[in-house]
């Protein structure tokens, strides 16, 4: 499903002439099978967010290859990667990344609009999904009028609306309280079980890491452990 092969990346920081190169990912290679939940853990600065951003196409890695769903995404240009994202990937962010001027319904509907789905179909699919994540009653609320848990549900509904085979999650419970965190993790497992969605989750939270079928640990830009969690 996802293959990361010999991936390396570095950041160039500082003013011109006094730039410093900081390597953040060093020869990362791993595979994720379909229907797996993979959690990537590591301390702050270990490179886990950079890895997810590279897989998401938000940054272009300096070296290595990334394959997803049989497509060598590391070679796609911005426009083609955008098309790939809208058809194959769902995203869950730590800070939800909902558009504040849009209602919950509009935020969830947005990927379908970008895909060019008809209005009638959009309405039906969005309402179904909002019902599934339990916030249909809040569909006309703006993100600012929702709690953190409700916002993350909207965010999950938006990720699910295009029926993606892969969901990439960046600290999905980072802004939630423990009770809501528990609910969300159960929901992720449910989606994985029922719909066979592959999850690649980045976290530094042990509780979140435990839901993964496998945990990949990063340290200073390298994978230090690969194993199956019991």
């Amino acid at each position: 499903m996802i293959t990361v092969d010999n991936l390396s990346h570095e950041f160039v920081i500082g003013k011109k002439g006094r730039q410093t190169i900081i390597p953040v990912l060093k020869n990362i290679s791993f595979k994720v099978d379909q229907g797996e939940i993979i959690t990537i853990v590591g301390r702050s600065g270990s490179g886990k967010s950079t890895l997810l951003n590279a897989i998401s196409g938000f940054i272009r890695p300096k070296e290595g290859e990334i394959w997803m769903d049989g497509v060598k995404v590391s070679e796609l240009n911005e426009a083609k990667f955008a098309d790939f994202r809208i058809h194959h990937l769902g995203f869950i962010f730590q800070s939800f990344q909902l558009i504040p001027s849009m209602t919950a319904f509009q935020n969830v509907e947005l990927p379908l609009i970008l895909k060019g789905v008809s209005e009638r179909e959009r309405k039906q699919q969005t309402e179904e999904l909002l019902k599934r994540v339990g916030i249909l009653d809040y569909q006309d609320h703006y993100p600012g009028e929702l709690s953190g848990g409700q916002q993350q549900r909207v965010s999950i509904a938006r990720a699910l609306i295009v029926n993606p085979p892969i969901i990439l999650a960046d600290e999905p419970t980072g802004s939630l309280d423990s009770e809501t965190e528990e609910e969300l993790l159960q929901f992720i497992q449910e989606l994985n079980r029922d719909l066979g969605i592959t999850f690649l989750i980045i976290t530094h939270d042990e509780k979140v890491a435990k839901i993964g079928h496998r945990i990949i640990e990063l340290k200073d830009g390298r994978i230090v452990d690969k194993g199956v969690l019991v």
């Binding site: 998401s56 938000f58 911005e78 426009a79 955008a82 098309d83 790939f84 994202r85 809208i86 058809h87 990937l89 995203f91 962010f93 990344q97 909902l98 558009i99 001027s101 947005l110 990927p111 970008l114 895909k115 938006r158 295009v162």
Partner: peptide, 15 residues
């Protein structure tokens, strides 16, 4: 920020 979110979820730059 809205443009960033749209691009993140798959909006084509041309759109």
């Amino acid at each position: 920020p809205d443009i960033g979110i749209m691009k993140a979820i798959g909006a084509n730059p041309k759109t």
